[in-house]
């Protein structure tokens, strides 16, 4: 069962859908004052995220993937241009958009039990009493397979379980958009595969929009409905691919699909070129 707030959100969403992007970045510039002058991380980037999409941003290291995600989250201000969530300009983190950090272990409150971590975002809402909070918290822990650990402290959990907890905590607030910054890069391959499946299942069953950042091209193609590759200097959108394989996708057979391989090559070419990697084996 879904938390009611998600269900009612869904209804209003249908009305305003009319093709409007849920997140829209327009002409976004982000620069930092670094030693020796201004360093431009993002240079006039446009990006629309359609409602319900699973959009993944890839690119060479240092191309501004994480920065882009933080601008979309309202965690960091744009230097110029604008970010809009559901039509409203984002100036601070808007309710309805939740960010999951790459260093998830550092984002979990070690002094709170697993259940108290999950309901953290709900404690702000005076309309939700304690009983209802616990109900939603347990429901979310069930969805990520942590129901048996609600009284544990985070220090007692493995890395994969901590990441499940971070995801459950984000989803407990019934967001429309989940932003995930390289969420699985610190996990072993098998745990990563399990969590990829979990996130896909949650995306499909909750009907949320996901914006995902990774440096792993195969992960991007396995998960996403759309992949955007950023390039550095100038830091703009290089490639914008629609990935229309039907869900659920089988990671084993998908990897053999010629269209998958063509997309993979296109994306890898872009990244390798920018990283200055060239292979003189004559392959085209």
């Amino acid at each position: 069962m879904l938390p009611e707030t998600v269900a009612s959100d869904r209804a209003t969403r249908a009305d305003e859908q009319a093709g409007h992007p849920v997140l829209a970045a327009r002409d976004v510039v982000k620069s930092y004052l670094a030693r020796g002058g201004e360093s431009v991380v993002l240079d006039h980037v446009d990006l629309d995220v359609a409602d319900g999409d699973f959009l993944t941003i890839v690119g060479p290291s240092g191309c501004g993937k994480t920065t882009m995600l933080q601008l979309l989250a309202g965690l960091s201000p744009v230097t110029s241009g604008s970010v809009r969530f559901a039509g409203t300009v984002v100036e601070s983190p808007p309710p309805g958009v939740v960010y999951v950090f790459q260093q998830f272990a550092k984002s979990i409150f070690p002094w709170r039990t697993v259940l108290d971590n999950v309901v953290f975002g709900l404690e702000r809402d005076r309309g939700i009493d304690r009983r209802r909070r616990t109900e939603i918290g347990r429901e979310m822990l069930g969805r990520v397979g942590l129901e048996a650990y609600e009284r544990h402290y985070p220090g007692q959990l493995s890395g994969g379980m901590q990441q499940r907890l971070a995801i459950a905590r984000a989803l407990a607030t019934s967001p429309r958009v989940l932003l995930m910054d390289e969420p699985f890069s610190a996990l072993d391959a098998l745990t990563r595969a399990k969590l990829q499946k979990l996130v896909l299942d949650l995306w499909r069953s909750l009907g949320i929009t996901v914006v995902f950042v990774t440096h792993d091209i195969e992960e991007a193609l396995l998960l996403s409905t759309r992949v955007v590759a950023l390039r550095k200097s100038p830091a703009t959108v290089d490639i914008d691919l629609r990935v229309d394989f039907a869900h659920p996708r089988n990671p084993v057979t998908l990897g053999e699909d010629p269209r998958f391989l063509a997309m993979r090559r296109q994306l890898l070419d872009s990244i390798y070129r920018q990283e200055g990697l060239s292979y003189e084996d004559g392959a085209r």
Binding site: A73, G74, L75, S92, P93, P95, V97, V98, Y99, F101, Q103, K106, S107, F109, F120, G121, R124, R169, A170, T173
Partner: peptide, 11 residues
């Protein structure tokens, strides 16, 4: 990161 977690969760 702990503080930013609070921000993204609306505090």
């Amino acid at each position: 990161i702990l503080v930013d977690t609070g921000r993204t969760l609306g505090y």
